[in-house]
């Protein structure tokens, strides 16, 4: 399929200006040489072995990222990332802007394919099959993964049509089935009561928080295996953020969720596992409770307590 992966794109170097998710080398003001051996090694350009807690290995995995690397043209954005993602749990990716967490997330559903000059190596296995394998159908892959973006992006159509979009493009025409799926997804996204009387109204008329919940409903309507959330609250006010967080906890009971967030409290509240990334490398990865209360690295401790980064 020649066209499935092409789209408007600006060259990668312009991308780095427009998206905060691509690597930008930033000095760490408080970083005291000698205090952070792992971070220092990373800053020297090395890829040291991350602190991976045993707890992350012991659970059933749905996604297995192994030695994954990614380049934007000549710039290497991800360095040897190896991390298993637990099935049925919420895993948060945290780290300072430009640490590659969004890039990693977008690699799972191969949305980075759309950017000119992107190359990858290593594997990301979904259910044991590498998503970057030659014979993988990208469209089928994306249907198995739901994604919610930083800014709510409802399509300019009715609320109903937004929710059932994934089913529509899969050719579903049965009205009753669509209605059923729409209601179920909206209920799961805790939006049903607010919009049930105006499903035919334009989705653009919803508030920001409602729009984002609509996008979540849209992402889960086809019951994806993994839900990818790319800083889903970064464009929302505190109250809307709180509702989305409650929703993520609720949804995390049914789905595997991988969430990128720049907000440490959010990661602590909603996730079961947390991975701390820095300059395109994994630094520490373990149970959220451990990462926030008993981190094994000084780096992680200082980052989650806001002392650096």
């Amino acid at each position: 399929m020649p066209g499935s992966v092409s789209m408007t794109k600006t060259p990668a170097r312009i991308e780095t200006h427009s998206r905060p998710s691509t690597p930008v080398v930033r000095p760490i003001p408080q970083a005291d040489s000698g205090q952070y051996p792992l971070i220092d090694a990373i800053k020297r350009g090395e890829t040291p072995e991350p602190m991976r807690h045993e707890s992350v290995q012991s659970v059933g995995q749905i996604l297995d990222i192994r030695n994954f690397e990614l380049w934007y043209g000549a710039t290497k954005a991800l360095h040897g990332i190896t991390m298993p993602i637990a099935a049925g749990k919420v895993t948060a990716l945290i780290g300072p802007s430009g640490c590659g967490k969004s890039t990693l997330l977008r690699s799972v559903n191969r949305l980075n394919d759309l950017i000119d000059g992107v190359r990858t190596s290593g594997t990301i296995a979904l259910d044991g099959k590498d998503v970057y394998a030659r014979n993988v159908d990208v469209i089928t892959l994306r249907k198995r993964l739901g994604m919610v973006f930083q800014k709510p992006n409802p399509f300019p159509m009715s609320i109903f049509e937004n929710v059932v979009y994934a089913l529509r493009i899969a050719g579903e025409r049965r009205k009753s089935l669509l209605q059923e799926a729409c209601e179920k997804a909206l209920r799961q996204a805790a939006l049903w009561d607010e919009v049930k009387d105006r499903l035919k109204a334009s989705a653009m008329g919803l508030s920001g928080g409602q729009q984002q919940r609509l996008c979540i409903a849209r992402a889960i309507v086809s019951e994806p295996q993994v839900l990818l959330l790319d800083e889903p609250c970064s464009a929302l006010d505190p109250i809307a953020t709180l509702r989305i967080e409650e929703l993520i906890i609720e949804i995390g009971r049914r789905y595997t969720v991988l969430i990128v967030t720049h907000n440490m409290q959010q990661a602590a509240r909603v996730s079961d596992f947390t991975a701390f990334m820095y300059l395109g490398r994994l630094v520490e990865y373990g149970r959220t409770a451990d990462i926030f209360q008993l981190p094994r690295l000084r780096e992680t401790e200082d980052y989650v307590t806001g002392r650096f980064g």
């Binding site: 399929m1 020649p2 066209g3 499935s4 469209i139 089928t140 899969a170």
Partner: peptide
């Protein structure tokens, strides 16, 4: 990866 008839028809339509 094998696709259902409907799915492959959509791919063909897109191409």
């Amino acid at each position: 990866m094998s696709l259902s008839f409907k799915e492959s028809r959509r791919r063909t339509a897109s191409a």
